[in-house]
Amino acid sequence: MQTDWIWGLVGGGLIGMGGAVFLLGNGRIMGASGILGGLIDGTGRSNLWERVAFLAGVVVMPLLLWPLYNVKIDTHLTDKWEVIVVAGLLVGVGTRIANGCTSGHGVCGISRFSLRGIVATVFYILAGGLTLALFRHVWGLI
């Protein structure tokens, strides 16, 4: 759709404001993989409820906005189970080893000109583009 980029900009602004609240309010970097991962490996036990509250907001807000949208929202997630499982594992392992994902390294890192954030973003975009090109256009598997 032609208006997609406007919604992208608006939504991006909201994401950035979320990051600003988390930073200026709690003094923390808003990274989805870190907030979630800390609950999984036990490193986030000291601020457990802060993490749970953040994730609750992430889950609930789309449901509150849902009635305002009169179009059907489709995530178009692949129905190939093996792809979903492999992709999930790679995203989980990778973001924790790299210590950040699109929100932490991408949004929060780039906005303070962090070299690590910029390098991570370049590598995950290149890896994503190459993987998609191979699996979709060369091998036709996804």
């Binding site: 992430v58 392992v93 995950y124 890896a127």
Partner: peptide, 28 residues
Amino acid sequence: LITGSVLFGMGWGLAGLCPGPAVASITY
């Protein structure tokens, strides 16, 4: 940083989901 980002990027490319959107879309 490099290896982790490459692994993450591969998964991101395969499914089109990263951690934030995976959580946000969990109900739908």
